[in-house]
Design a binder for these strands. Structure first.
Length: 740
DNA sequence: GGGCAAAATAAC
DNA sequence: TTATTTTGCCCT
């Protein structure tokens, strides 16, 4: 694995500078500068090589960022070079760019692209068998079938050959003993490459036009961004598959990015149906050896298509010809710890550096992407209709002021009646409520005490199944007491408001004869069982589904014809600058789940504010109007994508300390930059992971609409701040387009 | 000033 | 990130 000094250079490369060379090596630590090392004679190095270098008293991994002449007599020497694929120049350029843009140390950005080479050792050799042409002494019918299947002398995997010949593995072993088959080592390249001409999909006219446009831009090569916008069910996937096919036909590679949650088996088989083989899969669940294999395959070109979550963006592709960002509006593309980056934006940067087209696909694009399309920075392709003449679900509101639920209930009689009728027709109903747990607030009906998180300002949410009060902000959990902690009265605690668990209780009472299931991210039994239940829902096993936003993503439910949104106002009043956009996207996706099977669907939104622009847009189907209004509102408020925003995040184990330091930083920033109104403390910044690590985080929002150099501003703010007191960390997040 | 733990800092 | 150095705090 390691090419040590005492071993000859197996790759056979000649040493770059025999007179003596110096390598500038970047190590994956919180360091911004590459360190210089002497290249020992006999070690052939090239920029991008993964090397081992001494660092202080230990040895560490690094990447050669630059090579230059010089004897480097006063420097430590590079210890060795790994047999891992070198980082292509364009990828190094991307990493430098991201470091500069996000103000992260270059070493931390490098970390994103390095996955411990050498760990796990070499790939275990897979053994296969190959026909030798020698006949066995006795030729039985079973043996005849095996030899027929193995004809041609190509190597076969034992199990697959046995299956193809409809015999047991014992027959194969027998033939090996006879010398008719010989064992051979299978090379990893035996994995078939996706075939762009395997099974082209029949496309609608609108799809054909969009696909042709994408094919043209991929075939022409060069950088460009295209927004592929299509209502749910319009067949965006089939269209961007054609972009992937065009890249393959041009002899190039393709990458499809998806939010991790959308990467389902359903998607992979769809890909296999089009290209004859599933793509390489890259996400947090892919571990060890497989990761390394994909890494190497991508670098060598043995892998031509990868489908992956945001980190796949840093794979060492050499010949990328197309990059698709599916569900581009998803917040999951934003990395919130370590290096703060938005994978969609960085995908575009990679496209610009390497010169290939980028496709952003969504039924509900983000505001910034729509603005970029309107300003012609992105091309826009629209799929306005559902595939196969299927109508979009009719969306109507239930005005809760006029048709309120019965006391202590949450479902309006109008919705209950519609659900009843749907169930009688043998169709499926989804009650959607984006609130986990039993009740969002617990209070004492004697003294009015409300349970609040000790760390955050949020209320504690009752989870009846777990018998706990949980903070959805930071993960803090405590046992639900029997008596009020404030006034000590017993049995006076009451749940206020509904969560999905409580809704399920009401549903069971209203429709006792119908099987129902509750689906949310805290589903008991973990991801495995959850996936199983989702499949059962898709198969129509549950007439009633009660679910949170989890059911809005990825899965297709062909039996679903009625979606009842129990509280359409959730998220509209939260004060989040992206609240309207998020709610619109979520409800559009959820209501779009109805009527994707044989029968038409409809959706009912329970709301107190039917006239709200988001609700009105959903009902009228005028997405365009929503985008126009929201864009105008953003422009007026100086919010993204019009205001330039960045943030400093101040973290410390102690809440008071973190806040005090955040305020000190704001004062320093104001003094240095002199825009008193454009620096605001927001906080506490939610960050479940940070809090699990025992850190409280405060976010300072820097809003500079004027043509100020954002980076200069931030550096000045940090430089002018008092020296950070002990145990406080400040991280910087520059993200003008997608702040929240 | 010793002994110990926590915090700060250098790493080519 | 990790190993080493410095600082802070309690004690005698």
């Amino acid at each position: 694995m390691m090419q040590r000094l005492d071993r000859p250079d197996e790759a056979g490369r000649t040493a770059a500078a025999p007179a003596g060379a110096i390598a500038d090596v970047l190590v994956p630590l919180a360091l911004d500068t590459a360190y210089s090392y002497r290249v020992p004679p006999g070690l052939a190095l090239a920029p991008g090589d993964v090397v081992q270098v001494p660092l202080g008293p230990r040895e560490t991994l690094g990447v050669v960022w630059n090579l230059r002449a010089g004897d480097g007599a006063n420097l430590k020497a590079v210890s060795g070079c790994f047999d891992a694929p070198a980082l292509p120049p364009a990828l190094r350029e991307l990493l430098d760019w991201i470091a500069r843009y996000t103000l992260a140390p270059r070493g931390m950005v490098l970390r994103l692209a390095l996955r411990d080479p050498g760990r796990g050792g070499p790939e275990p050799l897979r053994l296969g068998v190959r026909a030798t042409g020698r006949l066995p002494r006795r030729l039985t019918p079973a043996r005849r079938r095996v030899l027929a299947a193995a004809e041609g002398g190509l190597p076969h995997i034992k199990r697959q050959l046995a299956e193809a010949a409809a015999v047991s593995a014992a027959v194969i072993d027998g033939l090996v003993d006879e010398g008719s088959l010989e064992p051979v080592v299978l090379t990893p390249e035996t994995t078939p490459l996706p075939d762009p001409d395997f099974a082209p999909t029949a496309l609608s006219v609108a799809q054909q036009e969009a696909a042709a446009a994408l094919r043209r831009s991929v075939a022409a090569g060069g950088f460009g961004v295209t927004l592929l916008e299509g209502v749910t069910g319009s067949g965006k996937t089939d269209v961007y598959f054609e972009a992937v096919a065009a890249a393959l036909q041009a002899g190039r590679q393709a990458l499809i990015l998806m939010p991790e949650i959308a990467l389902t088996g359903q998607f992979l088989s769809r890909f296999a149906a089009r290209f004859g083989t599933p793509p390489a899969e890259w996400h947090s669940g892919v571990g060890g050896r497989r990761r390394e294999r994909i890494h190497a395959g991508v670098a060598s070109g043995a892998i031509s298509v990868v489908v992956g979550a945001r980190s796949a963006l840093f794979l060492p592709f050499d010949r990328l010809g197309a990059l698709v960002v599916d569900e581009e509006h998803e917040a999951a593309y934003k990395q919130e710890d370590g290096v703060h980056y938005h994978a969609r934006d960085m995908a575009i940067v990679r496209g610009r550096i390497e010169g290939f087209p980028v496709v952003l696909a969504s039924a509900t694009p983000s505001i910034e992407t729509r603005v970029n399309a309107e300003r012609s920075r992105f091309a826009r392709l629209l799929l306005p209709e559902r595939f196969g003449q299927r109508a979009l679900p009719a969306v109507t509101t239930i005005d809760l002021r006029r048709d309120p639920p019965a006391r202590g209930h949450w479902l309006s009689p109008v919705l209950v009646e519609a659900a009843q009728a749907t169930l009688e027709r043998g169709e499926q109903v989804l009650f959607f409520l984006n609130r986990r747990g039993y009740a969002p607030l617990t209070l004492c009906r004697r003294c009015g005490h409300r349970f609040q998180c000790p760390n955050c300002s949020a209320w504690l949410v009752e989870h009846r199944f777990r018998r706990a009060l949980v903070c959805h902000h930071c993960g803090h959990a405590e046992r639900r007491p029997d008596s009020c902690p404030a006034c000590a009265a017993a049995d006076t605690l009451v749940p206020a408001g509904p969560g999905v668990e409580r809704l399920a209780e009401e549903v069971a009472e209203l429709f006792p004869q119908a099987r129902s299931v509750v689906l949310s991210s805290d589903f008991p039994g973990g991801t495995e069982r959850l996936r199983h239940e989702l499949a059962a829902v898709a198969a129509g096993e549950f007439p009633i589904v009660v679910g949170t936003q989890l059911v809005a993503k990825g899965h297709n439910f062909p039996h679903l014809t009625l979606v009842g949104v129990v509280d359409a106002d959730v998220g509209l009043t939260s004060g989040d600058p992206r609240g309207s956009e998020r709610t619109f996207q979520l409800l559009q996706q959820v209501t779009g789940r109805a009527g994707r099977g044989a029968r038409a669907g409809r959706a009912l939104l329970q709301t107190y504010q039917p006239e709200h622009p988001v609700i009105a847009a959903l009902v009228s189907g005028e997405a365009e109007r929503f985008y126009a209004e929201e864009t105008a509102a953003r422009r007026a408020a100086g919010l993204p994508p019009f205001g330039r925003l960045a943030s400093l995040i101040v973290a410390a184990p102690d809440r008071g300390e973190a806040e005090a330091h955040a305020r000190a930083l704001v004062r320093a920033a104001q003094a240095v930059a002199g825009f008193p109104d454009d620096v605001v403390v927001l906080g506490p910044a939610e960050a479940p992971l940070a809090l699990l690590r025992g850190l409280h985080r405060f976010r300072i929002l820097v809003k500079t609409a004027r043509a100020t150099d954002m980076q200069g501003f931030l550096r000045a703010a940090l430089a002018g701040a008092p020296r950070p007191p002990q145990r406080i960390r400040v991280t910087v997040d520059v993200d003008p387009q997608s702040f929240f």
